[in-house]
């Protein structure tokens, strides 16, 4: 199974020191609960049964400089190719790195530099 798995980061164009900025991470990864709604003769009520293994993004770790500032634990309840947005306080010029791990424990990462425009 060769699915595209990648992540891209987007930072605001202008960043001032000590400003709280929004960072967007576009994760390309399919997501599926693997559940199917079925109704059988024995059970007249519809219910979810597992028809396939779940496919999902497991964790997203956010590092600012060398320090982890956030960890997001996700599961198959997230959509396909989620666009995550979160905030950080830009206290210093340092790279922001995001490490994404999927259900098979494969990882991809992306990094962008937080640089102050008024420096």
């Amino acid at each position: 199974m060769t699915e595209e798995f990648s992540v891209k980061l987007r930072l605001p164009r202008e960043i001032s020191e000590n400003e709280v900025i929004e960072i967007k991470a576009k994760i390309k990864h399919p997501s599926s609960t693997g559940l199917q709604l079925v109704q059988t003769a024995e059970n007249r009520y519809e219910r979810f049964v597992r028809s396939a293994p779940a496919v999902y993004v497991r964790t997203v770790e956010v590092l600012y400089g060398d320090k982890t500032i956030s960890t997001f634990h996700m599961n198959a309840a997230s959509s396909d190719n989620p666009l995550l947005a979160f905030k950080i306080r830009a206290v210093r010029e340092a790279p922001i790195k995001i490490v994404v791990t999927n259900h098979r424990k494969e990882t991809v990462s992306a990094s962008e530099l937080v640089a102050f425009n008024n420096a």
Binding site: V20, E22, S31, T33, Y64, K67, T68, I69, S70, T71, F72, H73, M74, A76, A77, S78, S79, P82, L83, L84, A85, F86, K87, I88, R89, V91
Partner: peptide, 16 residues
């Protein structure tokens, strides 16, 4: 999970 480095506890995502 957040830390003081976030400045604000904020998350946007899309769900099933």
């Amino acid at each position: 999970e957040f830390s003081p480095g976030n400045g604000i506890a904020y998350i946007a995502n899309q769900m099933r």
